[in-house]
Write a protein that binds this DNA or RNA. Structure first.
Lengths: 200, 200
DNA sequence: GTCTATACGACGATAGAC
DNA sequence: GTCTATCGTCGTATAGAC
């Protein structure tokens, strides 16, 4: 039985592989997914996969970078459409919660996977573009006087840390309601932790 | 060449294996560590390992539960020696920072490893005993009136989330100084996020 | 560029002597 | 309870026809 994929554009094949890979990695993880699995799921033969990518790690790397790019684009949107750090950071948390609800396994992959175990040359997630953008927003808030002028790392961690823990708890199944119901109360605490006190 | 370990107590052998396993898993991860590696590192033969543990997963499970137990004991100590939620939670963060500095790979294992990939029957880390104890301390603070009476999950996430993000950033190498230098500033923000406002 | 068939090594796990 | 030797499986990756 021959495969269907004869004479399709290389870009198309690449996309088939990456889509299947994302699906499988988020379901079973990198190490529990074989190249054979990817071939089956994507309807692309092993030979073709190795033609387009150097090896299994190469597939993972391409897929991972696609993910980061998508996330960065969403963050750029926020930066364009909101002016204050207050609005921007609030929107970021809402975005993260939304992705968690709509594509939980994708978020699980981004949160949990210790990329260095299978992508030893990839930068750690914290220095990746999305996190940089998130920190930039905090820095901007310090310039405008919205946020206390403390260590940037401390401020970012405290501002986003609560939301991120909510996400992992939700993914672990110990929060039952949709995260979107918690946006306001989480945001209230998070913002208070580093905001310049207005009422003095 | 024969191994040295003839006629030692079974408990001793078990410990040799578990120590080596922790070492290897924190260095290379579960999937990058073979049973052969464990045998070599622990100086215990493969046959003996399989005599004491059901399979590779059994070794991981025993080691993981030992870790959780150690952590729980430290938290119990804190609960015994401090009375207020303020002091207890502060001590918890200090403890976590200290472990991060002294045994970074161990902390890396606890933070990053998605246990469900290799321990599918193990409860997620967030519902494990240490995290339960940490939430109990927050609940206690609500009873004493130190902490705002909001959703327990939200409060816990915001109180500990900032510190936990500092830990992952430190492990990822994007914080260069010892975390212990940040205890006070992190704590100040974290506590402010959920404390009952005293100054009104 | 796509495919099938296969090489080859490493892995988890077991058998059975001591 | 400890060990060595080995089995069978499955993984990644390649060779080579179309």
């Amino acid at each position: 039985m021959t495969k269907i994929n004869t004479r399709k554009s290389p870009e198309h094949t690449r996309q088939l592989v990456l889509t299947a890979t994302l699906q499988l990695f988020t379901e079973k993880g990198y190490f529990n997914t074989s190249v054979r699995d990817i071939a089956r799921e994507s309807q692309v033969s092993i030979g073709s996969i190795y033609h387009h990518f150097k090896d299994k790690e190469g597939v993972a790397s391409a897929m991972y970078n696609d993910l980061l790019k998508r996330m960065s684009e969403s963050l750029d949107d926020i930066q364009r459409n909101k002016d204050s750090a207050y609005e921007r950071c609030h929107a970021v948390i809402e975005l993260l919660f939304k992705v968690t609800e709509e594509e939980p396994r994708l978020m699980e992959f981004m949160m949990y996977s210790k990329h260095r175990e299978f992508l030893p040359d990839e930068a750690p997630i914290c220095s990746a573009q999305p996190f940089k953008l998130m920190r930039e927003m905090v820095a901007h808030g310090m310039e405008t006087g919205e946020i206390q002028n403390i260590d940037l790392m401390v401020a970012s961690s405290c501002l986003y840390g609560g939301a991120i823990r909510m996400i992992t708890s939700r993914l672990d199944g110990i929060i039952e309601k949709s995260l979107l119901e918690y946006v306001d109360s989480v945001w209230e605490c998070s913002w208070r932790s580093i905001a310049v006190n207005q009422q003095v």
